[in-house]
Amino acid sequence: MGLFESGVVSGLLVGCEYALVGVGLTLIFGTMELVNFAQGDLVMVAMYLVFFLWSGAHFDPLLSLPIAAVAGIAIGILTYEGLIRPLTGKPVIAQMVVTLGASAALEGGAQLWLGPNTEGIPNTVVSGFRLTAGAVTVTAPEAIAAFGAVVCIALVSYLVHHTRMGASLQAVAQDPYAAQLVGIRPRRVFMLAWGISGITIGVAGALFMQTYAVDPTVGITFAIFGFVVVILGGFGSIWGAFFASLIMGVAESLGTTYLSEYGLAVAFAVFLVILVVRPMGLRGTS
């Protein structure tokens, strides 16, 4: 029985963390109908940044978080300006191909430069602490990573839903042409979307280093998890992505608990089944 409960709790915590990737993706999709296949690899870059801040300057990941968030904004905007903007008006396949290429190049670059080793931060400020409630034990890094992710997502949601800046984002998402007519410049809005998405990338980099190790290939797992969550939550919906991520987290965690190495496969199978039953996602209607 305790096995099941700890499975659910750790799934929820993992789901909160992974939701960051999903939220970053859904923001961009919602604004410009683009699936960024390199999102996970950008998170990988942020994770390495946080790792090197620790190994080089002994910055704790929590201390690096604001730095990573700012760097994330830069990463997001650079990606948009360098790779995505030149593709304006090109077919969907071109966008897919380019972001896939970026994913391969980033992964390959990391391999070339840093080698295939797995790097983790063994002793952060919070590691060693743990909370126990009945049969369930939660480590402090897990709890802090999940909490931080929820705070970040809430902040992003506030930015998008309750500020002037966010209003321009939603205007472009709903009708790019009309938005242009009322004087909103799409390029600035797209930069904004990529910037906010970049915050989630940077924050994810710092939080993931609390609980995971980084190697050049981690990106793709995050990304696929992210895509799945975006679909389930309904393209463009921030909280949809969040709740879908919780479901996927629990599915993976329980899968791992009872079927060991098939855990992630169970999660994706759950996704495919949901997609067949509810083709428009969990919240979708039409």
């Binding site: 290429g101 970026a102 391969a104 190049a105 390959g108 670059g109 070339l112």
Partner: peptide, 25 residues
């Protein structure tokens, strides 16, 4: 072949993919 990542090749592969998408879509 891609998948057996090592050395410079995956980077070149990635860049080639990007260039194809940008200029030869």
């Amino acid at each position: 072949l891609p998948g057996q990542a090592s050395g410079l090749e995956p980077v070149i592969y990635g860049i080639v993919i990007i260039l194809v998408g940008m200029f030869f879509s």
